[in-house]
């Protein structure tokens, strides 16, 4: 599959400055990595191995010490406002209604959708009639859908989702995963998804990237051997069980250190 690279790291190195509480920590050491247009990729790895740093670099909250990051084929250090980011906690503003929350990126960037169009989108997301509710009134799953819609309305073609379902219960989570795939297929966006749930990564992704060294020198790529549409039952196939075993042992050998 030869498509455009929407996101590319070339020789990227990054470390956090020393603070009073910690020594300088190298996170990435000359890393190359890329994501194709329209892909769904996941990033897995134990806590503290640079998943969040990777997101901070992609969104432009941080810039590399050396090396280049290119977005849609353009090398730039000013990436803020160009990548849609969905945080782990929904981070909805409690003082704004659902409609006002979703409108935030539109307000900030002067985008197109009108309130009526957004209300229609909310309905498509299973949130019909909730536009004037406050986040405090919604369930966790609904809040995550609002947060996802807000991310989409940034208008960016690359969406980064940072463990968006980790706080949900198992059943809601499963529904949300299927719902997310559905949305991704409709929306024609590139999705980079952080998780530490291997099943989730296998079920959702075209490719999985494993961050399992410190500092990260190579990001290992795992191609998921499944066509779409998928069901949860596909994960029980022998070749997937084997892949899962392999990923678990890889992450475990690191996590034990």
């Amino acid at each position: 599959m030869m498509t455009n690279k929407v996101l590319e790291f070339t020789n990227v190195s990054f470390h956090y400055q020393a603070t009073n509480a910690s020594k300088p920590t190298a996170i990435f050491d000359q890393v190359d990595w890329h994501v194709h247009e329209g892909e769904f990729v996941s990033i897995i790895g134990p806590s503290g191995y640079g998943k969040s740093t990777l997101f901070r670099l992609v969104t432009g909250l941080e810039n590399p010490d050396s090396g280049e990051i290119s977005l849609n084929g353009e090398v730039t250090t000013k990436r803020l406002g160009k990548v849609g980011y969905m945080p782990q906690q929904d981070l909805l503003m409690p003082w704004r209604t659902i409609l006002e929350n979703v409108q935030l990126p539109v307000e900030l960037q002067g985008g197109k959708p009108t309130a009526d169009q957004i209300i229609q989108l909310l309905a498509d997301f299973g949130l019909a009639g909730e536009e004037n509710a406050y986040p405090g009134n919604l369930s966790g799953g609904m809040r995550q859908r609002v947060s996802f819609l807000r991310t989409i309305l940034t208008g960016s073609n690359v969406l980064l989702l940072d463990e968006p379902f980790s706080a949900l219960d198992a059943i809601t989570r499963l529904t949300m995963q299927e719902w997310l795939i559905d949305q991704w297929q409709k929306l024609d966006k590139t999705i980079v998804f952080i998780t530490h749930d291997i099943d989730e990564a296998l079920f959702l992704s075209d490719r999985i990237f494993v961050l399992a060294e410190r500092p990260v020198q190579t990001i290992r790529e795992v191609i998921v051997p499944l066509s779409r549409p998928r069901t949860m039952r596909d994960l029980a196939r022998p070749e997937l069980m084997e892949l899962k075993e392999q990923l678990i042992s890889e992450l475990r050998s690191e996590a034990r250190l």
Binding site: V83, Y85, L91, M93, L104, L108, Q109
Partner: peptide
């Protein structure tokens, strides 16, 4: 909220946006 502030930055918010849309409502 610091996280909300960073989220707004990723949406391309200016310092002014963050003050009016985040800091002031938080202080109310």
């Amino acid at each position: 909220d610091r996280n909300l502030r960073e989220l707004m930055l990723t949406m391309g918010a200016s310092a002014k946006d963050i003050f009016y849309k985040l800091d002031l409502p938080s202080a109310l």
